[in-house]
Simulated scan of single mutants.
Amino acid sequence: MSFESDQRLQSEQQAQTCAFGNMRIRIPQSSMIDCIGYDDAAGTLSIWFCDTGRYLYYGVPAALFEAFCNAGSAGTFFNERIKDRFCYVRDPERRRFGPNV
């Protein structure tokens, strides 16, 4: 990869990462995941799934969030490295209009 290509890739990644309150947010290109965010102070990973909304994962190391941001497939990374490995809750602020699933 050339220096110019590397700089362009870094600029694109920075453009897709922003801060939201205390949380760093990243929007991956994924059919499964809309958005991921990380609260450094709390060590909490937030994942907004396309179909089911936001879930909070506790005790996630910052390095894992960084690896998630750089993964080739956000869905595969989630399934292999996060799912069933951390305590989680469905977004407590989410309004529910039907049965709790």
Rank of each mutant, 00 (worst) to 15 (best):
M1Y: 12
M1K: 11
M1V: 13
M1Q: 11
M1G: 15
F3K: 15
E4R: 14
S5K: 15
S5W: 10
S5R: 13
D6F: 13
D6E: 14
D6Y: 15
Q7S: 12
Q7C: 13
Q7T: 11
R8T: 11
R8V: 12
L9Q: 14
L9S: 12
L9F: 11
L9H: 15
S11C: 14
E12T: 15
E12R: 15
Q13I: 12
A15Q: 13
Q16F: 10
Q16W: 10
Q16A: 11
C18R: 15
A19R: 15
A19D: 15
F20P: 06
F20H: 13
G21N: 07
G21E: 04
M23I: 13
M23R: 12
M23H: 07
R24W: 11
R24N: 12
I25F: 03
I25W: 04
R26C: 09
R26D: 05
R26M: 10
I27C: 08
I27M: 09
Q29I: 08
C35M: 13
I36K: 07
I36C: 04
G37F: 06
G37N: 07
Y38M: 02
D39H: 05
D40C: 12
A41D: 11
A42D: 10
A42W: 05
A42E: 08
A42C: 10
G43T: 01
G43R: 02
G43S: 07
L45P: 03
S46N: 11
S46E: 06
S46P: 01
W48H: 14
F49N: 01
F49Y: 08
D51F: 05
G53D: 04
R54Q: 09
R54Y: 06
R54F: 06
R54I: 07
Y55H: 14
Y55E: 08
L56C: 07
L56V: 08
L56H: 12
Y57A: 00
Y58T: 04
G59K: 02
V60T: 01
V60D: 03
P61A: 09
P61C: 00
A63L: 11
A63N: 13
F65M: 04
F65H: 00
E66T: 09
F68V: 01
F68I: 01
F68C: 06
F68G: 02
C69R: 02
N70L: 09
A71V: 08
A71T: 03
A71W: 05
A71C: 11
G72D: 14
G72H: 15
G72W: 09
S73N: 11
A74T: 02
A74H: 03
G75F: 04
G75H: 03
T76P: 00
F78E: 00
F78K: 00
F78C: 02
F78G: 00
F78H: 04
N79Y: 01
N79G: 10
E80R: 07
R81W: 06
R81F: 05
R81N: 11
I82G: 02
I82T: 00
K83V: 07
D84V: 04
R85E: 02
R85T: 08
R85L: 12
F86G: 00
F86H: 08
F86M: 00
C87V: 07
C87E: 08
C87I: 06
C87Y: 05
Y88E: 03
Y88K: 10
R90P: 05
D91N: 10
P92Y: 03
P92Q: 08
E93T: 13
R95C: 12
R95V: 09
R95W: 09
F97G: 13
G98Y: 08
P99D: 14
P99Y: 10
P99V: 12
P99E: 14
P99G: 13
N100L: 14
V101D: 03
V101Q: 06
